[in-house]
Design a protein around this nucleic acid. Sequence first.
RNA 1: UGCCCGAUGGUGUAAUUGGCAACACGUCUGACUCUGGAUCAGAAGAGUCUAGGUUCGAGCCCUAGUCGGGCAACCA
Length: 555
Amino acid sequence: MESTENNVKSLNFIEAIIEEDLKQKKHEGKLHFRFPPEPNGFLHIGHAKSICLNFGLAEEYGGLCNLRFDDTNPTKEETKYVESIKEDIQWLGFQWNDKPYFASDYFDQLYAWAVQLIQEGKAYVDEQSQEEISKQRGVPTRPGLESPYRNRSVEENLALFEKMKVGEIPDGAMVLRAKINMASPNMHMRDPILYRVLHAEHHRTGKKWNIYPMYDFAHGQSDYIEGITHSLCTLEFEIHRPLYDWFLDQIADGPKPRQIEFARLNLNYTVMSKRKLLELVNKNLVSGWDDPRMPTISGLRRRGYTPESIRNFADRIGIAKRDNVIDFGLLEFSVREHLNEIAPRVFGVLDPVKLVITNYPEGKVEEIELINNPERPEDGSRKVPFSKEIFIERNDFMEDPPKKFFRLAPGREVRLKGAYIVECTDFKKDEHGNITEIYCTYDPETRSGSNSEKKVKGTLHWVSEAHAVDAEVRLYDRLFLEEDPAGHEDYKELLNPDSLKIVQHCKLEPSLKEARVGDKFQFQRLGYFCVDPDSTPEYPVFNRTVPLRDSWAKK
RNA sequence: UGCCCGAUGGUGUAAUUGGCAACACGUCUGACUCUGGAUCAGAAGAGUCUAGGUUCGAGCCCUAGUCGGGCAACCA
């Protein structure tokens, strides 16, 4: 955000902290961030906000940013997620420092620190059941109770922890707990669990471990090991910060990372929790993590969003601590803005109706030259064939139109973009009243570029029947009917039944035969579209990224 | 009946750190246009949750409330 007068960039609260730290020479002027996803699902637009924040700050201030997989729970994590996360970050245009890091690389060190805490009398093995432990923890308004195992000897703790480690203890039978304060008003300080027994195979360490550290015992330490200076996370971890600091106080002697929390991104008309997104995928409510209706990065990519548009979006929404719900329209604005700049304009008729130009010579074909992108003259032009029989959009014709309808109707004139002005003389209907054919005459004097004086209110896109490419087009709408689906008992009931409309045999201009998967276009007057991977050479498939703004449709 | 955090136009974010609220999206006008797009010009819309206090002066500081969010997983 720029202030208008003196062009001074205004800082968000995290940048303000950073600049202050820099001024104080806090970490000898070094800046090191990290993006720490758990590989248990695909990244979504909310993660994009965090990615842009962390990697963006590193770029902005000349610091570093690690990609670190927070893989301390082998029951939920998979390699395929690791791969998708890497792909998404790179696609967004960011590069992590050095190599991908993994919390699991620190299991040995973490274990050693746990032993150290035991030796210092700051941790103990509890063999109560999960239910008992949870009951003793108390409630936020009342202190908890101390475990009967809280004060056993260091030797006994060491021996038990060793048993946990070598696999002699069944899942759930014992945990290692920090000895902090069962009466703390902060529930996370009531003797939090450090390690649990899990006879699970880890995606990277395999069967080496039978115990795995909890998030709280791994995260801050991982930051510390990597020399992170600013550990940025979302608001729900705010209450963990005293624990984050407590662990570091026990083990660290060098400079410590500082945890700073910011508000996560919420977008209306969608859900953003990995659990819910996973459920949509698992229940086949969408076609997969990359379904173009998903708010995942892979979904947005397939939908036709560009990395630039997402980064600009992240920039626009800002960083603060207050809860927020961003209007989906802002995301759409961001893609339109970028696509308007880069997408070649083409003709595509989604709902074709045939138009015959009765006074146009039979068999004649003119090659009409069309500008590829008026926003970028350097993108040149292309030739599009024009002939006697063409397709136009069905809703560009009305039998009995209102006065403000600037398109085709009996007796009305309209320009066929790049070609001629035509006047509707007649039309044909079938027994159901559907228009089947429209008849026009053209004025040869009005060809584009011929300086004819004639002006008309409307301009239509069109595709020559004989030259048309057939295609499938997928029209997407918001996935949910209500602004806040997650706020409902069952958000799945709020799925928009019309979130995907598949249209077959759309008619596209012949140049689109050359389009490759991922290519983006503006179908003139309709919206932005991109080639879907489901395409075949014979039958391309296009996704509508976003429609054009339509001030006519609004009325 | 606890602890932590937050509160600025419809939405989001600013306010040179105490000097009478700005930018973006959205909305509405109008111009232009061979995309009812884009672009351009303009408008409406908050007096900053409330009440006190400090001060020449408060969105910024203090006090007390109100409202909203979070915290009681062997998840992250």
